[in-house]
Design a protein around this nucleic acid. Structure first.
Lengths: 328, 328
DNA sequence: ATGAAAGCGCTAACAT
DNA sequence: ATGTTAGCGCTTTCAT
């Protein structure tokens, strides 16, 4: 790798001049600019970002912390972030936290040690304090906190919507599968759904599940033993919904005739399920992109109109819910 | 962020001493070691990785290039890489290439500018030359090249296996869906399957598809129009297989009685499909982990027994293939 | 318009 | 056993 020194020598100028033309800062005669660029070209010079970062006290790196990219909801977000940042020459240092506080802290620390310009994170509630007195901008993604800017989706409406859908389409014995209560967005959608359900005069049962395949499967197996006449299930996410769907099919229960099922997230494969899964869509890619946009705004010290950006969710009607019965 | 200077001052020693105790290099009296550590503790000192990296000419960063983490096969690998590297204090700079050469090059360049210690990449064939005269170790993942160490899986056996499965279970009008020919592992599994199929006296048709959902869907729609009496489909990956499954169900074709279907990869959601998809499993997580292990070996200049590590694939028998007919 | 030189935070000779 | 100092590659005053 060529250094600025070698370029300077090649061009017969000083390193300061090379630096100036590279950065378009300060003066540089058109002629010398050309000479320098020729040398840059010839030596295929690429500035050492580490050295720049050391001097400037900030790199072109952005730290990204996500719970687990093995859950398809998150890669979607990650791509939103990456694709947006990429245009501005920022790169991503990435880490999965598994919702573990110490992993988050570890990543935050090392990101800082690497002079990241900013961070985007989906962190657990309790870890937020770790972001408290950082000098660099942080934006929360899919999570919120009072003091930190955030991009997230409307969980409350999402939860309510899911409940409304089943209600409007005639389910009366509904099981609401609650995800881990520590994960705020998941808890919020649950609360909202429960509220909506409770207001209706309908049988509601709550069951717990993790957000994973295994968790969903074991939850759902019990579900039908405990509540055999269930005619509606609201799952905490699409993965769990998929597990439920499988169990429903296995038991020969007709869907959506005998039972309705709705998921949450609208990850890609839900459309491929059989029957295709009705679900509440979160605009994951868009959320990632907007978080990235907000971060860049922060980095550039631009004014930000709304620091808490709540994106809308929507009901994606597929075939695990019935057609809505119009009132006459 | 505290600097080494401040720690030195706090401890009443020189920066060199602090550096020595931090790195466990050179001498340091036990007493002063304690004093220094106390100061480190007090100021919550974390060495600036950028400065270390500048001096050492190498960071604790590893570059990872994957085609697209939106395809569930890759996050699995990514976690394998991350989880393994993490134990050794390495962090990941990450980029999706979308199989585009210029994106790969761009990422390689910026990774280099950031003094990465090494790189792991699933790159397109033609981009390999970009790795040619790098001073840092590179290991290819899921892809291969002669001059570069690599961890990948046995595509040839995988492709053959897929063909064998359908053959042994009685399919005689088989459509082989070929993925993009530029992607070598995908092409290899195709060739192997085709070879096996051709040797058997069986009708074989080849169709093309991209590796995505949309690609799969449009391919599969045509498939049944062109070859209505197909009784076996070998898909280039699980996503396309899922699309095929959906089309099969939509057309009311019985599976596996009337038609058999086999995917490739064994990504998580295949088990959730209905019926659960039979597929060829690649040990994605393991591949990632082993690539990471090999990279670390390289970084540490250890001898490496085999630089081309081919991991075995296996047939995961689920319900889109029939029970094998044992010969009497 | 250009160059010399200091300094970003750290490590490793080298000196003591 | 510890301190002084040069230097990693860059940017930016400050001279000229």
């Amino acid at each position: 790798m060529a250094t600025i020194r070698e370029v300077a020598k090649e061009a017969g100028v000083s390193v300061a001049t090379v630096s100036r033309v590279m950065n378009g800062s300060g003066y540089a005669h058109e002629d010398t600019r050309k000479v320098v660029m020729a040398a840059v070209e010839k030596l295929n010079y690429k500035p050492n970002e580490v050295a720049r970062s050391l001097y400037n006290r900030k790199s072109k790196l952005v730290g990204l912390i996500l719970p687990d990219i093995t859950n398809p909801f998150f890669p979607e977000m990650a791509r939103g972030v990456e694709d947006y940042l990429q245009q501005f020459g920022y790169r991503l240092i990435f880490g999965n936290s598994d919702e573990k506080r110490d992993k988050e802290i570890e990543y935050i620390d090392t990101f800082l040690q690497n002079n990241v310009v900013g961070m985007i994170a989906s962190t657990s509630e309790e870890a937020n304090e770790n972001f408290d007195n950082l000098e660099i901008p942080v934006v929360l993604l899919d999570r919120t906190a009072e003091k930190l800017p955030a991009v997230y989706s409307d969980q409350k409406t999402g939860g309510r919507l899911a409940a409304r859908v089943l209600l409007d389409r005639g389910s009366t014995n509904i099981v609401l599968i609650r995800g881990p209560v520590e994960i705020k967005p998941v808890y919020e959608r649950y609360t909202a759904a429960l509220e909506e359900l409770t207001q209706a005069k309908v049988n509601v049962q709550v069951m717990d599940s993790s957000l994973t395949l295994q968790g969903g499967q074991s939850c759902v197996r019990q579900l039908f033993e405990q509540y055999p006449n269930t005619d509606g299930i609201i799952a905490c996410n699409d993965i769990v919904a998929a597990a439920a769907l499988q169990e429903i099919l296995k038991r020969g229960i007709r869907i959506p005739e005998d039972i309705q099922l709705i998921g949450y997230d609208d990850i890609a494969f839900t459309a491929l399920l059989h029957p295709p899964l009705s679900t509440i869509r979160q605009p994951a890619y868009e959320m990632g992109a907007q978080a990235a946009e907000m971060l860049i705004r922060k980095i550039n010290q631009e004014k930000i109109a709304e620091t808490h950006k709540k994106l809308p969710v929507s009901f994606v009607e597929r075939q695990t819910t019935r057609r809505k019965v119009e009132k006459p």
